[in-house]
Design a protein around this nucleic acid. Structure first.
Lengths: 332, 332
DNA sequence: TCGGGCTACGTCAACGTTGACGCTATCGTT
DNA sequence: AACGATAGCGTCAACGTTGACGTAGCCCGA
């Protein structure tokens, strides 16, 4: 840690007290225009920068927020992280970052480290089954925004996409384009309460045309390889499937690869819909039909709500659920 | 900021002084086994966590490191960031994260914010043309590791891949497989000093077979769309190209898409080699021949060297250049 | 002329922790 | 028995900043 000039150094050079320099730096008022100019000049000369540790120690605001993601290698995540980081910077906060790898124990660990660094608030993509635990931190006064789950607890906000609707739209689209033997490739790392895509998928069959086969479902790892596995498992159950909805685009691409290798034509024999609209989806052939999520919007909302929670900890915002949009491309 | 128990609270409960609790917590020695047990029990009961702000204020070690990336949406970066974060966590440091978006001014801004939070060191993927500026920070005592550039300055380390060799291997491979009209699609956001891929590319032509056309080169944005642009520009110059080396895989994929749209068969008419081996490269068809970089290795080395620099600021490590490997797949 | 209010500062303590140092009881050595 | 060393604490100050409060000088109105 390179230690620079302090308030005292600036004060000594200008010939005022450190308190006055502090007032100028924080623009608190209570100083003359002449003093202000001389202080700012000295600040510039000495390259003074406020020490956020000392400031945070006394104001109990460290000027930092934490972002806890699941897994950077999930292609859905980086754009979100960048968006959140930019928004945080624009509101003058520096961002801690860590991953929980979907592991509750690791999440607890990184959370602890952020707490000890006195973060002003945290945005979390929760590891499975950790919502209650996070709520406990919120109750103790830590402003918290949970992304990608819908929960209501005091001092805790949640922001998510309407994935139940997205899955429903995707499945309805498969049904509407004449598919009748439809399966979903789900993720095995979800908790029952938060299986919104599965609910939307199943709900689409309530008004399905007669002759529609009952929906099939497998749960696999939410990766390209998992998607391939999932498709193989489904084809073993019934080889005449003609429609697939996948938990995310990576899995959809994996399923598409596996289907093509097994001799199925996409979309002629088998239509595939993904979810998330990652960049990859527009680069495979056929280009993937998918559910588009407005990630910049979610980043912005997450930080906005976190900032509100930091300013006014007693507020209790309602869960925010953002609309999604089906993007029909070539795989259906 | 939720404020928890302090050393005083623990001390009061145990009936010792805060200094003794501090000694136990930091395992400094100078206490009896009985005291240790009672302190640790109280620490557990009260959920005491050291306040890193206060600790950092006095020890001049904040227990944080900074990571400054260029752009999260570059598919090459997230895996690196995750690796670095994990390594940092394992050495007990929490990681700040920010992007410079390739903009020197933004980089200066995020650097300043990290400095004011008293980071112990920073790992930077530098924005173009900022190496001197970063070296100045290093001279002032900030331990710094620069990734993806080869520089030598006091108190500053650099870690990078041998991209000159990678580009050379890739181009030699094109020549060895009978290509004779070869172009490179370079990136326009590089500074001359650091155009290592271009040097490796050009060097391959020194011993090229007779009848090999002089190398072509365009510089475009380092994205999928840029790769498409680049290929279009090159084909305007000469439509009989039969080999392409691209600055990175995203550009290679863009070039491949553009070539296929223009009626070229890959690899029959046009062989394409990328660089970086991102996940996408194995998912497009034909699968991309590319230069593989050992990203986990680089993450680990970067943190390891940074830790050394933090422990012993006077050391002056030599630039570390990691070997790379050509992966031949279907696009050549 | 007095007092009330305001401007433009300064002083002091505190945030939670650790470095430097001091003190006491005990133990082993001579 | 006297002495030094050591173990096991405690005390105090400091890190750089800001909150709370004090105060000197001035202006203005009554």
């Amino acid at each position: 840690m390179a230690t620079g000039a302090t308030l005292r150094d600036v004060a000594y050079r200008v010939g005022v007290s450190p308190r006055t320099v502090s007032r100028v730096v924080n623009d608190e008022g209570g100083f003359s225009e002449a003093t202000r100019a001389r202080v700012l000049e000295a600040v510039e000369d000495l390259g003074y920068q406020p020490n956020m540790l000392a400031r945070g120690l006394i104001t109990r605001r460290s000027g930092t927020v934490g972002l806890v993601g699941v897994d950077m290698t999930d292609p859905f995540f980086p754009a979100m992280a960048e968006g959140i980081q930019n928004e945080a910077r624009e509101t003058g906060r520096t961002m801690f970052f860590a991953c929980n790898d979907g592991d509750p124990r690791r999440q607890a660990e990184v959370f602890k480290s952020m707490l000890s660094h006195a973060v002003d608030g945290v945005i979390v993509f929760p590891a499975p089954g950790t919502v209650e635990e996070l709520a406990a931190h919120a109750r103790q006064g830590m402003p918290l925004v949970i992304v990608d789950d819908i929960v209501e607890f005091p001092n805790l906000a949640s922001v998510s996409f309407d994935l139940e609707d997205g899955a429903n739209q995707a499945t309805q689209h498969l049904l509407a384009t004449g598919r009748s033997r439809i399966a979903m490739i789900g993720s095995e790392v979800t908790v029952p309460r938060n299986r919104r895509r599965e609910r939307g998928f199943l709900r689409a069959f309530e008004n399905a045309p007669t002759g529609t086969a009952p929906p099939e479902l497998v749960r696999v790892q939410p990766t390209v390889a998992g998607g391939s596995d999932g498709l193989a498992q489904l084809l073993e159950r019934r080889s005449d499937l003609d429609g697939i909805f996948a938990f995310n685009d990576s899995m959809a691409v994996g399923a598409m690869r596996a289907a093509q290798s097994a001799g199925y034509r996409v979309p002629d024999d088998l239509a595939i819909v993904g979810c998330n609209d990652i960049e990859l989806s527009g680069l495979v052939s056929p280009r993937l039909t998918t559910v588009r999520l407005d990630r910049p919007r979610l980043s912005a909302e997450a930080i906005r709500i976190l900032n509100r929670l930091i300013e006014a900890p007693e507020t209790n915002p309602a869960p925010l659920v953002l609309p999604v949009e089906l993007v029909v491309r070539e795989s259906t």
